[in-house]
Design a protein around this nucleic acid. Sequence first.
DNA 1: AATGCCATTCTTGTATACACAAACGTTGAC
DNA 2: GTCAACGTTTGTGTATACAAGAATGGCATT
Lengths: 216, 216
Amino acid sequence: MSENVGRWLRDEIENAILSYEFAPGERLDETVLANRFGVSRTPVREALMQLDAIGLIEIRPRRGAIVIDPGPHRIYEMFEVMAELEGLAGSLAARRLDKASREAITATHSRCEQSAAAGDSDAYYYDNEEFHKAIYAASRSDFLQEQCVQLHRRLRPYRRLQLRVRNRLSTSFLEHCAIVDAIFTGDGDEARRLLRTHVGIQGERFSDLVASMAAR
Amino acid sequence: MSENVGRWLRDEIENAILSYEFAPGERLDETVLANRFGVSRTPVREALMQLDAIGLIEIRPRRGAIVIDPGPHRIYEMFEVMAELEGLAGSLAARRLDKASREAITATHSRCEQSAAAGDSDAYYYDNEEFHKAIYAASRSDFLQEQCVQLHRRLRPYRRLQLRVRNRLSTSFLEHCAIVDAIFTGDGDEARRLLRTHVGIQGERFSDLVASMAAR
DNA sequence: AATGCCATTCTTGTATACACAAACGTTGAC
DNA sequence: GTCAACGTTTGTGTATACAAGAATGGCATT
């Protein structure tokens, strides 16, 4: 539990939204939330304010808070931006790579290899996240790293859906290999290009996303 | 005045921070702010929570809120990300350009021309912002547009400092011309490249920034 | 039967009060 | 004279009370 109740509630509600416990479009009643978590309305309001600022919910004056429903098109736009940021991170990482970052990337990369070989989609989902975070960190740009982590967090549920697609696990890992190679050989432009296509959801992958979203 | 006091306060305090009325590192006392704006502490706290979520201030538990001081290096990192996002916006704009966007870009571009010709740095600062916003809009990606506008807003004070540098006005406008040309001819890659170098602060422009920041 | 208006009720928005933690100053002892 | 400990003060964190606005349901009128 975080230092103060407001922060804790923010994380708690954020997780509930990202895990679809609070469905998109659902109205979040302050009193209900306060009772549920056993606190007063004040910290609940503070948490909601922050989630509104982040963009996870929308607070309409005098009409309460509702969970934002991004919809496939907006998700696509978010992946597009994510791809661009990851591309930048990759190109910076290639230029600035040091020993520690290299080892972190290698370590997470080999964990991905194991999960992919085992066909364990849930494990890969987690290891994949760590792999990408290692690249963010290797960019040595604190701001970029923060932006990437934040956007990654918001897209987390959809990234998970993507992995369900047939053969995605192995192709994803093969793409990782090429990315690692580009970064380690210092080819920033190639790392950027590979990461952009790896993260973006071009062509049929977009329809796959729409299909998995509809299936829920 | 916005719908509720909290939102209004958020904008008010945000402007005060961005215009250096509240200096970086300064502690923001809730009671003082409440008195100053003639409201109670509750909406002040809500405003501060939101500003913390945006990243303009930092609230340390039980120790109050302080205005974040980015420092030259972090500003550089933020410009780096901004350059990347604007590059993406430019390349999308080149691909998706329609009549309305084309006219908006042309209109803001010619206003920049007038301000630049007049050597009016303040007018150019404003027109330049509108020009860039027209490109964001032309990207037809709502999410990208929002991200760009938000980051642009945070970097606004520094963009203004940059324009003070000798000859920057005319070189900036010349770069605009090339960018418009690339977008209108549908050359997405070129638009991306030009915008990246236009927005980023490479080489001596970084020292210029540091110098102007130190001068304050 | 349908539609419009009014009243009631529920929920949000703001204020105030109280509790608790941290920082600073003062005093005493070594 | 300096350092440490205790008390006071200041300011944050949470709860509760009160006010104002929006939604909903019922009743009346057309």
